[in-house]
Design a binder for these strands. Structure first.
Lengths: 214, 214
DNA sequence: TAGATTGTTAATCGATTAACAATC
DNA sequence: TAGATTGTTAATCGATTAACAATC
């Protein structure tokens, strides 16, 4: 029997549910109905119930959802009950920013090492994480279990490095380079295209302030 | 006559078209058919033609699309023919990374100033852009035309600052704080939620390496 | 029990794909 | 002209919303 595939739209919404539930938890809210959550999140209650029911019945008729339980369950669905070891490739500003962002560890993502080609950066440390030469990367990956590589390097270097990483057994790539990586399908790529995000903003701005609105 | 609203799905795809066309342009490709572009981008040719026809007939039967022309036109649709002045609020690692990312200027986004509360950062410069105290921000915004504010500050501070910015006339907010900003609808918000992106990656990873696949 | 709210089916809406006439 | 490929309509597919019976 085939397990029905969860749609991409649903998955994209899960982290936002998780965030709202985390916020409610901090405010010591014990239970919440789909209706109330829908008002906070500005979505329909129906969508919330549909989405959650892809994964099982987390609620209770007449009561709603227990915030802590639902938060935990969505966390499990998102794989946040596991630990991931992460390397950052490219110790430029963005790579350093990610390395410094200690919050990821709270979610189980541990930055183990940072790699760069620039010999002047090699040997420096960020939050106690040493920047290593990219020449040491192959050996490092083969000797240590590395789940995720964050790619914060120039577009020109990204495809080659990504294909090396795939060959060396990396499971997931968090790609910040402004290019699409075409890898074997068993390597999972999640893109963060900042320039594209900014373009969407400028589209909306220029849409709004368009000369004639006929 | 009501101008038909372009769907969000289409807008989200435009920056990617723009990127592919820019890459083709760099490779001196003069013309491209929807079929060939669809193969490179791994989408259907039909979708490309549908998407583009929301904005007008940019192609020519029997020929395809002129790469340079189409690139320019999509650029205009995205508002990249205009200049935007941008401030960064929060001079932490991410704020500094954005300030250092000179590439945005090529697209017309000019970082004019950076603001922070930390007095130890105030007075320092990044790429010649001075970090100012957040106390000076209101006056700065009122004296200078500022189109976009990038919010790279903690979740706890973001809502208050965002509402100040809205009051002071900022048109667009590029929000990196892990929270939703509820502002008057004429302020445009574009979110970059890095933690959520990482959760999507971990979802896909744990989905793939799930124990039983029944 | 009565009231509330879920889980789930059915209806609607929107987005994607297919098909092909128009036309370069 | 013949061939290619767009622009656009129609068909399909998928996602969202509405409705309500089940049930706590």
């Amino acid at each position: 029997m085939e397990k029905k595939q969860i749609s991409k739209a649903v998955i994209n919404r899960l982290p936002r549910y998780y965030r709202y539930l985390g916020d409610l938890l901090e405010k010591d809210v014990v239970r919440i109905s789909s209706k109330e959550l829908s008002e906070r999140m500005k979505v329909t209650a129906s969508q919330i119930r549909q989405d959650l029911n892809n994964f099982g019945g987390f609620g209770q008729q007449g009561y709603g959802y227990n915030v802590e339980y639902l938060h935990t369950e969505i966390g499990k669905i998102l794989g946040l009950d596991k630990r991931y070891s992460l390397i950052i490739i490219g110790a430029g500003n963005l790579g350093q920013a990610l390395a410094n962002y200690a919050d990821f560890e709270r979610r189980g993502f541990y930055v183990r090492s940072i790699f760069d080609i620039n010999p002047r950066l090699v040997g420096l440390s960020i939050r106690g994480i040493e920047i290593k030469s990219i020449d040491e990367m192959e050996e490092y990956i083969k000797m240590n279990q590395v789940d995720i590589a964050a790619l914060t390097l120039p577009k020109s270097k990204a495809p080659q490095i990504a294909s090396d990483l795939a060959r060396w057994g990396i499971k997931g790539i968090w790609n910040f380079a402004p290019t699409d990586l075409h890898l074997h399908e068993n390597v999972i790529v999640e893109n963060v295209h900042l320039a594209e995000s900014l373009m969407k903003l400028s589209y909306k701005l220029s849409e709004k302030y368009k000369p004639a609105d006929n």
